[in-house]
Design a protein around this nucleic acid. Structure first.
Lengths: 330, 330
DNA sequence: AGAGCTTATACTCAGGATCAGCATAATGGG
DNA sequence: CCCATTATGCTGATCCTGAGTATAAGCTCT
């Protein structure tokens, strides 16, 4: 391992200027967007290249910030105004396939939410796809996906049993049990990334199979190029966690909506069904929405009241779940 | 603002190869570490250059990943083994001071936890400092810090009143009220970054005052160079949020500890006092620790049992706070 | 028009978690 | 041996959550 040049560097020169004279290596930076919308009760993600890649673009030094660069680029590429955006993760070990070792990429990934999900006509290779196409085992809205019991569970068990020593075998079993809710363990919808990485590690993801491995016992679920499916998993996990403590669902809703539509959107994201009455109680106990006064009859049965998001809540409180037993009296 | 060159790039060339021919600009990347330890019931952060900078180093392309690069660099610099690490944020709008506009930095910041906090002798400019030196208003362990009522609140009120229009004035008031718990609003210890950015925006942070502004009505609380104080605030906020749902405190504890020592560590991080009995109930209801069998008399009164962390919990469950009203029956 | 479907919305009740204080145990020091 | 100090156990009130029942109000079909 080469000595990192200059880190213990010339203290004298560093003392001079305010900016440390970091002899940084030059690299290339790209931005990758996980752009999410919900249409027809399906969580969708914007893809390019026939669904095999997430949209990505160069980091423009002309822009003031990364966010600005991302925003400009996505809007210009897709015609979509970007709503809420949030940084996901910065990867540098991007291209594990060893080719291109000399060129060094840094990939800065973002999660972005938007209201519209109509495919733009000018780029035929741009498409909104349900994210469950890539992760079919993540959709529990119709009960446990059969692929888990039929394919995933037995293969993970085999993988665990193939561990070199008892400790490793037990550890693999545990991880599989927790990630996929095996053996009566509860399903935890937030563990999207852990599940994907477990499948990857167990060699069940096509991305993990190198040329020459030759067995095609891969799972249902479309792969993506590079590590874009991993980035997508990161975005889904983040969003599933976030909807629980920040009112971000509304970024995905139309201006006005019924409570059931709101519930269906959350269910689409979380991949599981919610208890209707308790969901409503939760929503109005937090005073997140207000009635518009209108009703819609398009929902089928009794007309449903229409609601809109109260943007004031963003100012009224900073919803953060305190779980520490703080002393109130002191 | 100049048109971002290349964003509308040659769609044709992109169509050809699997890897988008990203016309990426070459930039320099550095890693910045918020390295945290708790000693003497004080949360401490590793600083260099007389406390004015967080440790930072170049991203080494020789390393496999960012984490590996960070780890190698910090350990080599400080002699500390890095415990738990987690990526914080990637900044590109780092040097707002407009100098050096041609050189472009990307700063990837990390939060890292470690057990030891003894200053290493070989680098005299390296020091562990209580983070409350930089954010005195964040320490509520002895009640509300006087600086809030005496200095911060009136100045923020003045800043709010100076807004151009009524809407802006009300918005500023709201933000100040929430961030600092004014007007009977509860204190929320997680809003570290919002508070710092509010003070920054209101011109109360020395970092925000440009040469020539000339007024020195700055707050107590040491500044740092560049935006390192902002990065530190990000790290503190992340850690304060994390201790509530992941057992990361133990990364900061000695091998064995008493329950009160554990509580004091959490209190140091959270900046507020906890209810002793409820804290204990919380800890053992989660089965996070187990008795070592020993006791210590060094704590003063009745000897306290010593505990150790049960690392199995990391495997047993993936503690994630479900807050959605899911249907259990379906 | 009314039966029967669908969806919307109100109310209730039990169990569990949390808040907060009180009581008791076991040390060391004057 | 009393007292200060810390550790630890216990209890009652309150709030939150899970889950079910009941009722309202539209539609379509006969």
């Amino acid at each position: 391992m080469p000595e990192p040049a200059g880190t213990s560097g010339p203290a004298g020169s560093q003392q001079q200027s305010a900016v440390p004279a970091v002899p940084a290596h030059t690299i290339e930076a790209e931005l990758i967007a996980v752009l999410v919308a919900v249409t027809d009760n399906e969580p969708r993600v914007l893809t390019i290249r026939n669904g095999s890649l997430l949209p990505s673009g160069p980091f423009e030094t002309a822009h003031r910030s990364l966010q600005a660069s991302l925003r400009a680029w996505v809007e210009q590429q897709t015609g979509h105004p970007l709503g809420y955006t949030e940084q996901l993760y910065t990867f540098a070990d991007r291209d594990r396939s060893a080719e291109d070792a000399a060129r060094r990429f840094i990939s800065i990934s973002y999660l972005a939410l938007t209201r519209q999900a109509s495919a733009e006509g000018n780029r035929p290779d741009i498409a909104w796809r349900s994210w469950y196409r890539y992760f079919p085992w993540e959709d529990w809205r119709d009960g446990a996906p059969p692929v888990i019991a039929r394919v995933i569970a037995p293969r993970l068990r085999a993988w665990a049993a193939a561990g070199a020593d008892p400790a490793l075998r037990r550890e693999r079993q545990q991880r599989a049990r927790i990630a996929f809710g095996l053996n009566g363990q509860n399903w935890n919808e937030e563990l999207v990334l852990q599940r994907y990485e477990l499948l990857f590690e167990a060699g069940l993801a096509p991305e993990a199979i190198r040329r020459g491995d030759g067995d095609d016992r891969v799972l249902p679920g479309e792969p993506m190029l590079h590590d874009h499916r991993r980035i997508l998993a990161t975005g889904i996990a983040r969003l599933r966690a976030k909807i629980k403590y920040r009112p971000v669902v509304f970024e995905l809703m139309a201006e006005s909506f019924t409570l059931l539509q709101l519930q269906r959107a959350v269910e689409a994201l979380a991949g599981r069904l919610l208890h209707k009455q308790n969901f409503r109680r939760l929503i109005d106990s937090q005073a997140l929405v207000e009635e518009t006064g209108d009703v819609t009859t398009e929902t089928g049965g009794r007309p449903a009241k229409l609601f809109r998001f109260r943007p004031q809540v963003l100012l009224e409180r900073a919803v953060a779940g305190t779980k520490l037993p703080v002393t109130r009296t002191a």
